[in-house]
Design a protein around this nucleic acid. Structure first.
Length: 758
DNA sequence: GTAGTCACTATTTGA
DNA sequence: TAGTGACTAC
């Protein structure tokens, strides 16, 4: 009975279309979900509905792109159904496939405890291959080759198919890199030999496993995963879709696959995502039922309308129009600076003004930019104004050198064939194994088709190098031994000590070294936490193995640190538009809206890429719940040169009705003091106005009314006390919330101050 | 083995 | 401008 009630209550929280999408659990379903339309809610409630319909949790496979999205989903399901949530197979494509490959990899020629190569490892290996082939590393740009290999894998193009493909070969010739296919071939060999998979391999090898179907492994997983769900389907690449098809299309299949996505938010074509998959879906699953979630619960009218305005300029799209029944709210504000510096200053001022007017906390505000390089100016001005901020998307914790070095010791202990790990630490900290020795080793290993570790036994060494090498091998063996008898934490502790990394930093005695020691300690803490985690996820196969070193290594190699936002401080967020996808803020600033920047100069040559930039802009503006401010600068420093760019075409695409006090975009630079274009409209006292909260109904008093001893409100500085006024009508006001120099001298003739009576 | 110098390049990013 | 990687000289 209780359960019945719960069932009803969760369905009642959905609108009609959402409810349909949630309760249609048989057959293929496609949900086109506009921004802010309750996509996550549909996904989670659908899983809840499956569980309530007596579907065993382990038959449900829910795939996302980020750990964060997966965690959010699991947490929400747990709130509704409890522990069963953890028996659902929910996670990122990569983590779920890695989990399966840990059990099955031996069937396709990989060890079950394969290493995972991150992008740095891949690059380092490719670099080595280029060198071994005596190719010019300037022409054979490592990054370019890596992404070429990556996209070949993502499109299921083997080296053989690569050579046979005229288009690819022609492209490589044009780029003066005709040997790319050969590098690709060697790279695959080397990964296999090292027992390592890169990120693309986690998908590719999963595909191979299902496709080659050793021991009918495909049927096993087809039988297990009867219900598939995919989030952000517009971000899937060819390979991912092929895997999904292998799992869901077969004789007797119910085709219970539900995809959720939005073609208008497809912004990752540069890493292989293709909207074709959405369009193809209806062909592959002709029975598909399509639901469009068009009601936006996030943003106020003008923002939603502006988003619609802009996206209509893209021709190729699934027709839909988002709408909202929220209040019309504020119009979009436009800020123009003469230079990038000034843009930064004006944005910082506008932020302070908004904070005071609407009593926003820092965490309700975000600044979005097209390129990360733009963050600096804003940082400077925010710091100057004493606004706490944090930047999304810097170097992740697990990418720090010292952390990776420690991990390399552990990786090597788990899988000695891991050449990239070996290269990292064989002479770090320095133990007298020089470049020459390492080069010989690499070459010998390559010539014999074995791993470097296996070569160590046979390589000829000078007596000196021999002792050093002996020491190194001893350390690794010791770590290995520890790993057998002890848990991951104790093993890692030993590795840190024996490797000499900590001693190295201790002797350095600098602030930076201190920092690195702290990071290593943080890593150790993390490992300890992993080991001591005694929360037993019911139903999962928990045995000693799960706490093993190799398991820990897998877990963290698939992690980024966008997870660690355990911030105590109230911070404003600075981030690129790409990384803002999926997030929302009360007030959003989209900055640097200039031609050649947003849209990026890289995209101007092709209409497809320009459309993607436009979708990116669409994503940017739909992050805002109530206040949206757009800005551009007449000039800015790019690559050390002053550049003059026109305002972005996207600004013109928003209809004037949605912009406060429209200005002519293409107007010549003004010489008057730049100011916020379009004044803030005084808020109505209507209590339903989203942001009108009590005292923030700011209304300036005539400056003559300001007297000594009064409490006043200033839009920029907040609440203050008038200490004195001099003969030139300059008031000295002490502001409560300003930590440094709370005393400001305010010119009353210009200031807008509201007298506070209490 | 390392410090110093020069030349080159330059979106977006998850796992 | 700023960061990186390769090369040179000790």
């Amino acid at each position: 009975m209780q359960e019945m009630k719960l069932t009803e209550s969760y369905l009642n929280e959905l609108n009609d279309v959402q409810k349909e999408a949630v309760t249609t659990i048989n057959g293929p379903v496609m949900v086109i979900a506009g921004p802010g339309s309750g996509k996550t809610r549909v996904l989670t409630y659908r899983i809840v509905h499956l569980l309530k319909s007596q579907i065993p949790p382990w038959q449900i496979l829910a795939l996302t792109f980020t750990n964060k999205a997966a965690r959010e989903m699991k947490d929400r399901i747990e709130k509704l159904v409890g522990q069963d949530a953890y028996k659902v197979w929910a996670g990122t494509f990569h983590s779920i496939f890695a989990r399966i490959l840990r059990v099955e990899a031996h069937r396709i020629g990989f060890p079950n405890d394969f290493s995972i190569y991150d992008t740095d490892d891949s690059k380092s290996l490719i670099k080595e291959i280029i060198k071994s082939m005596n190719l010019d590393p300037k022409v054979y740009n490592v990054g370019a080759i890596r992404s070429r290999i990556s996209s070949a894998k993502s499109n299921l193009i083997t080296p053989k198919m690569y050579v046979a493909n005229n288009e690819l070969i022609e492209q490589d010739k044009m780029n003066r890199r005709p040997m790319t296919y050969k590098i690709y071939e060697k790279y695959l060999e080397r990964c296999q030999r090292a027992g390592a998979m890169d990120f693309d391999d986690l998908l590719l090898q999963m595909f191979r496993l299902l496709y080659q179907n050793p021991d009918n492994i495909r049927e096993k997983y087809q039988q297990q995963f009867k219900y598939l769900m995919v989030d952000e389907f517009q971000d899937t690449n060819f390979l991912q879709y092929e895997i999904l098809k292998l799992l869901s299309i077969y004789n007797g299949s119910q085709n219970n696959i539900c995809i959720v996505g939005d073609d208008a938010q497809s912004i990752y074509s540069f890493r292989g995502a293709t909207i074709e998959n959405i369009l193809q879906f209806a062909n592959d699953f002709p029975e598909v039922k399509t639901y469009k979630l068009e009601q936006n619960y996030r943003s106020t009218q003008h923002i939603v309308q502006a988003a619609n305005d802009v996206i209509t300029f893209n021709k190729k799209q699934i027709k839909k129009e988002i709408w909202t029944d929220r209040l019309s709210g504020n119009k979009i504000k436009l800020i123009k600076g003469m230079s990038d510096t000034e843009e930064g200053r004006m944005i910082a001022n506008a932020i302070i003004e908004q904070k005071n007017r609407y009593s926003l906390s820092n965490s309700e505000i975000a600044i979005l930019y097209r390129t990360n390089a733009q963050s600096r100016v804003f940082e400077e001005h925010l710091r100057r104004q004493n606004i706490a901020y944090r930047i999304y998307g810097g170097l992740s914790f697990y990418q720090r050198k010292e952390v990776k070095d420690v991990l390399a010791y552990l990786r090597l202990a788990v899988n000695t064939k891991d050449d990239e790990a070996l290269k990292r630490v064989i002479n770090y900290p320095k133990r007298g194994i020089g470049q020459g020795t390492t080069n010989n080793l690499t070459k010998l290993a390559d010539d014999n088709g074995i791993s470097m570790w296996e070569c160590l036994a046979q390589i000829q060494l000078s007596p000196r190098a021999k002792t050093s090498m002996g020491k190194f091998v001893g350390i690794i063996k010791e770590i290995q031994k520890k790993a057998v008898t002890e848990d991951a934490y104790k093993t890692a502790l030993l590795a840190v000590k024996k490797s000499g990394i900590i001693d190295l930093f201790k002797s350095e005695n600098s602030l930076e070294a201190q920092n690195r020691i702290e990071n290593i300690n943080a890593l150790l803490d993390g490992i300890q936490e992993f080991v001591e985690d005694d929360v037993l996820d019911e139903g999962e196969d928990i045995n000693k193995q799960e706490r093993s070193l190799s398991n820990f290594l897998q877990t963290i190699s698939l992690m980024t640190d966008q997870d660690n936002d355990n911030d105590q401080v109230d911070t404003l967020t600075l981030l690129s538009v790409h990384s803002a996808k999926g997030l929302e803020f009360k007030s959003v600033f989209v900055v640097g809206l200039e031609e050649n920047l947003f849209p990026s100069y890289m995209s101007l040559s092709s209409p497809e890429q320009l459309d993607e930039e436009r979708r990116l802009f669409y994503v940017a503006i739909t992050r805002a719940e109530e206040i949206l401010t757009l800005s551009y600068a007449n000039s800015r420093y790019q690559y050390g040169q002053m550049k003059f760019n026109d305002p972005s075409r996207f600004l013109e695409e928003i209809s004037d009705d949605n912009i406060e006090s429209s200005i002519t975009i293409k107007k010549k630079p003004e010489f008057a003091t730049p100011k916020i274009l379009g004044k803030f409209k005084p808020l109505s006292s209507n209590p339903t106005t989203p942001l009108a909260v009590g005292a923030n109904n700011f209304q300036a008093n005539p400056s003559n009314d300001i007297k000594i001893g009064q409490n006043v409100l200033h839009l920029k500085f907040g609440k203050g006390f008038v200490k004195s006024i001099d003969e030139r009508r300059v008031a000295t006001i002490v502001f409560e919330n300003i930590a440094e120099n709370p005393e400001k001298r305010i010119m009353l003739n210009y200031a807008r101050l509201q007298i506070l009576h209490d």
